[in-house]
Amino acid sequence: MSQLSDRIFGLAVILVALVYIASAMQIQVSFLSDPVGSKAFPIGVASVAIICAVVMILRPDEEPEWPELWTVFSIIISIVLLIGYSYALKPLGFIIPTAIVAGALSYQITPKPKFAVLSGLGLSLGLFVLFKFILDLGLIGFPKGWFV
């Protein structure tokens, strides 16, 4: 089948929506409730989502062009990098994680090592100066205790 993507996504939506409805059923209701209540709207929306997903499964569109395996791999790497960045920003400060992640992303887009290193360093330092000294945001440059 060349129209698998829409069907898989539709199926995933149905599963999520069912879980959603199930957890909406569990919502605690306060004793002072209005006629509609806390449950009706989420359940209604999730039901409409299921109908849409069924239509997607029955009448899928043409298959989009998915990237080749190697590209999928580099997208996954960049997702992991960004997740790591989210965790690193607070303990490690702005400059070091930003230089690494920006450089790595740059390399993923255009694989030129020298350019990637330079854009990582340039972006990290340039943005730090911009944010810290021109826009006056409260960023921490380095881990605490390095330059005290």
Binding site: L82, Y85, S86, L89, F94, T98, V101, A102, G103, L105, S106, Y107, I109, T110, K112, F115, A116, S119, G120, G122, L123, S124, L127, F131, L137, G138, L139
Partner: peptide, 20 residues
């Protein structure tokens, strides 16, 4: 401006924006 410089920049600005 090459995308290899632009897009990482945009991403970092987005992250810092939300973080701050």
């Amino acid at each position: 401006v090459p995308p290899a410089l632009l897009l990482p920049g945009v991403t970092m600005v987005s992250f810092v924006g939300i973080y701050s």
